[in-house]
């Protein structure tokens, strides 16, 4: 069962593969720089106690993103 969705829609514990970025300009560059290039595996680690931001494991490092930013990342749920 594979489906394309946005990174912010995944629950903690699930994994996905980056398909593409919908962001442009500066935000796109930053997202690429932290390793969110197509094909990258991302694991959802946890939400902040207040629900947002969410921590993701991206290429070995745990990086937190806000909902506004993670919803620009298209992923394939694994």
């Amino acid at each position: 069962m594979q489906m394309v969705t946005y990174l912010n829609c995944l629950a903690p514990g699930s994994s996905a593969e980056v398909v593409g970025l919908q962001a442009t300009g500066f935000t796109r560059r930053r997202l690429l720089d932290i390793g969110l290039v197509p094909g990258t595996r991302v694991e959802v680690i946890r939400h902040s106690p207040s629900g947002d931001p969410t921590a993701y494991k991206i290429r070995g490092a745990i990086i937190a993103l806000r909902r506004e930013d993670s919803m620009q990342v298209l992923v394939l749920k694994l």
Binding site: F26, R29, R30, D33, I34, G35
Partner: peptide
């Protein structure tokens, strides 16, 4: 820094 692509002040 994670990269040298200059997208942040540190970089």
């Amino acid at each position: 820094t994670y990269s040298l692509l200059a997208s942040s002040v540190e970089e």
